[in-house]
């Protein structure tokens, strides 16, 4: 198991390096540079030149690349033009918020998706199955940003806003500091509800479809027949024997959903004014705040790679065939 993890870890490093490099290349492909944002006919050209020199934009590309690489070891990613703070600080503020949002969404995706999939498989061809199949397909086709807006609409409608108080923007309420410990947790939780649903529902539908297929395949296996022949109660057969096997391909699926999840945070954080990396990236792009854009883009890629790594390790943890084979 240790060997397997070590190997996977080692394999991730070149990928991370590739992401660093690709980010750098992408950013420097663009015409213009950060100073174009400040371009103003009233500003004399040599002031702009000075700005460029200050930002290190006049040095040759390979040097800039090495600087960029070095920043990973020093932790100093430069300075954000638009926020006038070190990039590291800006990212440091935003990252945990995105992780919170994505993490809870991931939980929703898998719990809801697996539950729906299992129900469908166990009651194959029943009314519930057919309805859920169509519903899952419909939900899977819904754009996250639109779902977010419709949820906001729903919650703000006169019918629901009377008794359901769900916030539609931000992470915390204005009076957050004045609430007790429990109040603060509840406040955060309430702010999470709508964004998490908007971010995760479509993917949950996708997982439900896969889970249904996986369960159906597992339930047809010989060892399930053996379990039934032993006289085990059906619940034990489904939950204890079938489910554990059906979850395996879903765990490896985790890796595929991560890019979608993180990509989704860009729009969802925008819709719900959630102070996370997605919104940060978007605003930085509009402001041509290159250091932030580079750092954020890199981070998204790195999060996906790390997430995949974790998913692989998780898979090894739950599938004994991988664990004891060293493969």
């Amino acid at each position: 198991m240790l060997r397997y993890s070590g190997r996977r870890l080692l394999g991730a490093i070149p990928l991370l390096l590739g992401i660093v490099t690709l980010t750098f290349i992408l950013l420097h492909l663009a015409p213009g540079d950060p100073t174009t944002a400040y371009f103003n006919p009233n500003i004399p050209p040599d002031v702009i030149e000075q700005m460029r020199r200050n930002l290190g934009l006049d040095r040759p590309l390979p040097v800039q690349y090495l600087d960029w690489l070095r920043s990973f070891f020093t932790g100093h990613f430069g300075y954000s033009f638009s926020q006038h703070r070190p990039v590291a600080a800006v990212i440091g503020d935003a990252l945990p918020n995105t992780l919170l949002l994505s993490g809870i969404s991931l939980v929703l995706i898998f719990v809801l998706g697996c539950a729906a999939g299992v129900v469908q498989a166990v009651r194959q061809y029943s009314a519930a199955d057919q309805v859920l199949t169509l519903l899952a397909l419909a939900i899977y086709s819904v754009p996250g940003f639109w779902l977010g807006l419709m949820l906001i609409l729903l919650v703000s409608s006169p019918v629901l806003s009377g008794w359901l108080h769900l916030p539609i923007s931000g992470m915390v309420s204005i009076d957050h500091e004045y609430l007790g410990w429990w109040g603060r947790v509840a406040d955060r939780a309430r702010h999470l509800v709508l964004p998490v649903i908007a971010l995760g529902l479509a993917s949950a539908a996708g997982v439900a479809r896969y889970m249904r297929g996986s369960m159906l395949e597992v339930v047809g296996q010989d060892y399930i027949r053996t379990a039934r022949a032993k006289g085990l109660p059906e619940r034990r057969v489904i939950l204890g024997h079938a489910l554990r096997n059906a979850l395996l391909p879903i765990v490896s699926l985790l890796g595929l959903y991560l890019p979608l999840l993180f990509g989704g945070t860009v729009v969802i954080e925008y819709v719900f004014s959630w102070p996370g990396m997605g919104r940060l990236l978007y605003n930085a792009i509009l402001a041509r705040d290159y250091p932030v854009v580079m750092a954020a883009t890199f981070l998204f890629g790195a999060l996906v790679v790390l997430g995949n790594l974790l998913a692989d390790l998780l898979y090894a943890a739950v599938d004994p065939r991988v664990r004891y084979d060293g493969r």
Binding site: Q221, D222, K230, H241, R321
Partner: peptide, 16 residues
């Protein structure tokens, strides 16, 4: 009544 099946390779649950 207990039963033993033909395929020992696939008749046991691989994750238990």
């Amino acid at each position: 009544i207990a039963m033993v099946f033909q395929e020992p390779m696939t008749s046991l649950n691989p994750v238990l």
